[in-house]
Design a protein around this nucleic acid. Sequence first.
DNA 1: TAGTGGTCTAGACCACTGA
DNA 2: CAGTGGTCTAGACCACTAG
Lengths: 253, 253
Amino acid sequence: MGTTQLESVQEPKYWHLRTVLSEALDSEFTVGEILPNERELAARFGVARATLRQALEQLELEGRLQRRRGVGTTVAPPRMGVAVGTGQQVWPGADDDAWQPVDSTLAVPPAAVATALETARDQAVHIVRRSRVSDGQPVAAELLYVPLASAPEATGSDAPLEAARARAVLAELQRLELQGQDRAVELGSARADDARELDRLPGAPVLVVTTRFFAEGRTAALSVATYRADTCRLTFGAAGGVEIHHGPGPQAS
Amino acid sequence: MGTTQLESVQEPKYWHLRTVLSEALDSEFTVGEILPNERELAARFGVARATLRQALEQLELEGRLQRRRGVGTTVAPPRMGVAVGTGQQVWPGADDDAWQPVDSTLAVPPAAVATALETARDQAVHIVRRSRVSDGQPVAAELLYVPLASAPEATGSDAPLEAARARAVLAELQRLELQGQDRAVELGSARADDARELDRLPGAPVLVVTTRFFAEGRTAALSVATYRADTCRLTFGAAGGVEIHHGPGPQAS
DNA sequence: TAGTGGTCTAGACCACTGA
DNA sequence: CAGTGGTCTAGACCACTAG
């Protein structure tokens, strides 16, 4: 990574810096390796720390770096592929679907959720929390909204463990006939509680996957799953997905 | 939006500010309305401009705001749903698939692409550029990599218009029998050329959709599509997808 | 040309981690 | 405790847009 000086070009410094660092990561660093600290790097490139940080932020967004307060900046492994839809449609909680039930409460959902579920705005629904772990690392947190109509028997508060209540709601869903589902993916930023669960700071970029489940001619459940955008690549369909990214660019022939 | 002062809490100022602004957007602003400029807002909230900008960046990431240099900051409309997969698998360029062919060149692809296509690292392939417009706004740019084996006849450089060459490659694809495809979605940042095409600055957050098309027992084409993350919600399956987001939060019952 | 957001600086202090 | 990244400040100048 040289003791480089940045040449002047009509391109923001932080963007040029990002490119230089990116190339250095490809050629001179190995996964897990710790980079010099920010003050050191800034000095080495002759820029203010804030500018250096702007470049690091980009690289973190792209999944190339991982930064942890009090520890340092390390080279991130390639993003892991996380299967989100296998083509066939199944209820959440079916067999083993990679999610771990956490707990379940009865509460009034946000207005937008109530609208999607076609419940009254002050109507409480089951809110099942689940989490997903991959490679020993938390990758996603989910809120599953289930109207009472879809799980009428799980209403009692007599379940001994929190997780057991969640499982009871999920079990009731399996009894309905799933007629269809649709999905949407968008960018979001982690709310404080999601951030804690995903081991990130509030505002960290996340991929929000919203899934609507249809049964009995209505929306029988709604899942809002929040994936770490820095470490995850969401895959759909067959197996695994492709890993396309960073690495020496294209050359004209 | 009051002439508010921020109370001191153990929460970053920019995060608290984000929340305050978000609520103000819900209750006191309409889509398209112009916010006061950054210096004005920073003064009003008693913070440095950089801090205010951190909050605005969050809100822009979440699709709540749109900022344009030389113009100002406006309240963004809800993200538009952009259909990415309808469940059935079809070749790119089939009938009308919402994409506009731009041009096509013959070049050596990035190493990662060559690997996915199982072509030699120095083997040129067709690189078809396409763009996608929705609601009169560019929403995505695509690079479609097609090995010569999948489109052997479009090799001639005799096509008069750039777009015609692209169409020729796509037409050849339709003749193959599509055996399957898989997809991955991940967060990225716009390269300089994509940024220009999407009317954003370099580094703007984008959703990268990578699709592999299988035919004749091999990977017959590879599409890397770059969607504006601030304005798009990618939808899969049936129709439209759900709009779940910001708006008055949940209340315990 | 006036006004906007975008970039950059050089500092300070804070919150967290690990030895 | 020393060292890391995270937050924040108060300024400056630049690039772009629109009248």
